[in-house]
Design a protein around this nucleic acid. Structure first.
Lengths: 162, 162
DNA sequence: TATTGTTATACTCTATAACTATA
DNA sequence: TATAGTTATAGAGTATAACAATA
């Protein structure tokens, strides 16, 4: 067990859950969004950590698993992050032999990244951690799940735009 | 305009909004939660920044505004953060004369923090930025607002616990 | 001893800019 | 010149551990 996830929010981990929502925030979507997201991420992070996996790997591995070989630039775009932020993740993944890099013959500057068998295995493992986590969220949301996702997607879309 | 908020997510700011939700995440609450929260926070942050205000001040100032004088430790508890994380914020707020510190006669180790008139003014200003932001979220959520908040609160509560 | 606020340190996540090697 | 990947650097946000003063 690395110590990476142990960092995540004491207040979300121990019992002191501040039910004290400041009155000014009680009716504020943004506040609840933030608190819910923090709690959700901390839980996922802790679960991944317990399995010795890095939560940050999940998106990258999953995108690779479902899209196949990609350049770092494309991968960044798909993950919604700057390419420079992927460098160290890719380095880590490569050093664990979870991905393989293959030089592109037609452009010597670039290369494509793809999962190794082991990378695929780890991706599955992370997926299973994520699924347990999702199931918890699904249970909590219950019948409201689809509406919840729909509204969240609307928020993401509208707030990113103009 | 400081540069604090300029940091927040390019992909959320420019037009490249990845509508490419990876298929594996399309049905996953946690994913949508994260993306929505990022977009929402980035928008608030940008708005606060445009007004020359620090988004991080908002919680602290608001808690002080509605609760009155508090020690740093209590303030941290109310904000759901470790006390040590408040030190630099309090230093900043004090240097701008937005808060005043008052030594406690009964315990010389501690002191209480309260808003100054100027601090109150800034809090109001941030509140107004927040309100504009909230209104946007409210519009997006529409009739689903209350349900959304309820579900988010359930998530926050359940995921923090056991 | 225990607690308060502070400091020192560390770690995550993300970004921008500059560098390199190609194109 | 322009692009791909990398490096260097930065900053926000958060946490823990240890310290000095005080209880």
């Amino acid at each position: 067990m690395t110590k990476s996830a142990a960092k995540v929010s004491v207040s979300a981990r121990n019992g002191e859950t501040d039910d004290h929502v400041p009155a000014a925030f009680r009716d504020v979507i943004g506040y609840h969004l933030r608190v819910a997201q923090e709690a959700s991420f901390a839980a996922f992070s802790a679960a991944a950590d317990k399995a010795g996996l890095k939560p940050g790997w999940y998106t990258v591995l999953t995108v690779l698993a479902e899209t196949g070989p990609l350049t770092p630039t494309d991968l960044g775009r798909r993950c919604g992050r700057d390419r420079s932020t992927l460098t160290s993740t890719l380095k880590g993944l490569a050093s664990q032999q979870l991905i393989a890099r293959e030089r592109k013959p037609e452009d010597q500057r670039s290369y494509s990244v793809q999962l190794t068998a082991e990378g695929f295995r780890i991706q599955q493992q992370l997926r299973s951690v994520a699924r347990d986590h999702d199931r918890r969220l699904d249970e909590i949301a219950g019948r409201d799940k689809h509406l919840l996702i729909e509204v969240l997607a609307r928020i993401a879309k509208s707030m990113s735009g103009p």
